[in-house]
Nucleic acid binder design. Structure first.
Lengths: 331, 331
DNA sequence: GTGAAAGCGCTAACAG
DNA sequence: CTGTTAGCGCTTTCAC
């Protein structure tokens, strides 16, 4: 059942059927009524591949995700989805599992015109490839802009967030502050680590790289990190983590050692995922405005969708430091 | 840059270019080499919309997800993805957020032939619609088959899982056992509740509907559920939850009341998500073979992809009851 | 207000 | 081994 079949049933041309489908006003009301009834009768759905081929657009955008197992991305995607829907775009999510060949495979959907644009939450391909991609196709990075790439992006000021946290710790008298981070060496991660170092420097504490433990972002990496840090002399009294999962693993280890989290050792997470309020102790964390990160990403993409040559923008959204029991609930 | 442009540059016909692209053996080696070099030079990528329109297939399958914020689905999708890739299919994930209009929108991709098949992890549309969909398009349900729908599906025996847990509780002397469930009234949920009731009945404990608290699946619903159950007289000594999030919320409430989880009250979660080992107490849970649920779903879908008239199969995969601290670590 | 026809980019007979 | 050609389903001029 295609547009031609409908045309035959109606004794009309395909052009008229197409006009009805696309709400073209210059169709007689009686004709429109007849066509719609036939369309309804045969449950006809226009073939979108044919339409895409003709119009050269799909009204779909791709969201590239590094992993499905991080609750952090959920609300971002909702922000994208709801904003996109207002503009008539459906979103498709592809998961790369941090594999470059997967990323390349899905980015091909852009070149193949199977999607009109892409919002990427993580890229492994190099800066030049990103720059060139962004020049030719609507492409926006969210949360994790590739360093030295010329591309529109939305993120928070990761450096400032950790800087502020460390400053607060120092203000409260902490002298030995550890950090548990990842080893992806990406923008957000390096920003967070820079914030840590800058705050120490600005407030007269000597930086020691042994106080920064880098690994993956799994719970167990947080536990391993905490173990290493607790072996440091003098023992750290505060730990900043690059994710809530790391913080959770860290508190889990600390508790197992009888160390009182929030009293003996303060722990700060990152991302403020919903788990933070259901752990004990509840977890202090840095909140990213996830919904808005998604929403603003789509708005940037939409500008590119309208005009691929529009200027690239870098948007920085505000974060909040949320104190809960793991930092003694104060502030 | 399209196939015709390449043909011109090569002084060959589009047919030959197409043959090279599709690895047709009957192309002279020298010709192939020349074409490939030109393709490479101009970074030509065949337009998949044109190809799809012509071949009437997309080599893409859709995965329909109720929400992005449940870590449970992550590994299922990986199972689907890896199995699909072996067969040359890419997967696209769409999130419905439990909204029927979203579900319908994405299922349209199937009718519009924009994807070749669909694996759905949750459906809200009625059984007849599912049956009809599955008759006409490759469609498989994973974890949550619609009741009374004629469709291929993969799941665990939810009834048996809870039955076994409750039986274990009874064997250990528990007399008052509560249940915290959801109120979606879907197959898995009702199965779990039936298992609860059946076990009580089979082992001579009178069922009281006040011992089953139904709500959403958020952490807070677990907390609210636990609060209600703890008000029951005599106070329950064991609680079976329909998800880990509910169990986590429940233990969080119990701890806040000074009730020792795993000692005073045993708590069993469901799904064995990774959080279970990083809470205190660690959370007992029922494990679903997530990767295999995904893998087997794709295998069923593949059968339908080959032959839409192949018989519908219902596959049941084994579960495991994992005891941790929240049930006193025994068994 | 409606129709005829071209063409989006590709593949697959069929011919040679 | 290569080329010619039709056509997948749709939209959009251009006529009328």
């Amino acid at each position: 059942m295609n547009i031609k079949d409908i045309a035959n049933k109606c004794n009309l041309s395909v052009a008229t059927i197409s006009r009805v489908i696309n709400n073209d006003p210059k169709v007689a009301d009686s004709t429109r009524k007849k066509v719609l009834s036939v369309i309804d009768k045969y449950k006809f759905v226009p073939n979108i591949t044919g339409r895409s081929l003709r119009t050269q657009k799909s009204n779909k955008i791709l969201v590239l995700l590094p992993t499905m197992s991080n609750q952090f991305y959920s609300e971002i995607i909702q922000g994208i989805e709801e904003t996109a829907e207002e503009k008539g775009y459906a979103i498709l999510v592809a998961v790369t599992n941090l594999q470059e060949h997967q990323e390349i495979k899905y980015l091909h959907m852009l070149r193949m015109k199977h999607v009109d644009g892409c919002i990427s939450l993580f890229n492994t391909i190099e800066a030049d490839a990103i720059t060139s991609l962004a020049k030719n196709y609507p492409f926006v990075q969210c949360c994790e802009p590739t360093m030295n790439a010329d591309v529109s992006s939305v993120e928070i000021n990761n450096r400032q967030a950790v800087y502020d946290v460390v400053k607060q710790f120092i203000d409260k008298g902490h002298k030995t502050i550890g950090m548990i981070s990842g080893d992806y060496y990406k923008t957000s991660e390096l920003g967070r680590e820079t914030g840590y170092q800058d705050a120490l420097r600005d407030y007269g504490i000597k930086f020691d790289k042994n106080l920064v433990v880098k690994n993956f972002y799994r719970y167990e990496d947080g536990a391993i990190g905490a173990k290493k840090l607790m072996a440091y002399k003098p023992r750290p009294t505060a730990i900043v983590c690059a994710s809530d999962s790391l913080a959770l693993g860290a508190t889990s280890y600390l508790k197992s050692q009888g160390i009182k989290v929030g009293v003996d050792v303060c722990v700060m997470g990152f991302d403020n995922t919903s788990i933070t309020t259901y752990t004990s102790p509840t977890l202090s964390s840095i909140n990213q405005p996830r919904y808005d990160l998604g929403k603003e990403s789509f708005k940037l993409l939409y500008e590119k969708l309208q005009d691929i040559n529009s200027v690239n923008k870098k948007i920085i959204l505000p974060f909040q430091i949320i104190h809960r029991e793991s930092t003694g609930c104060d502030n």
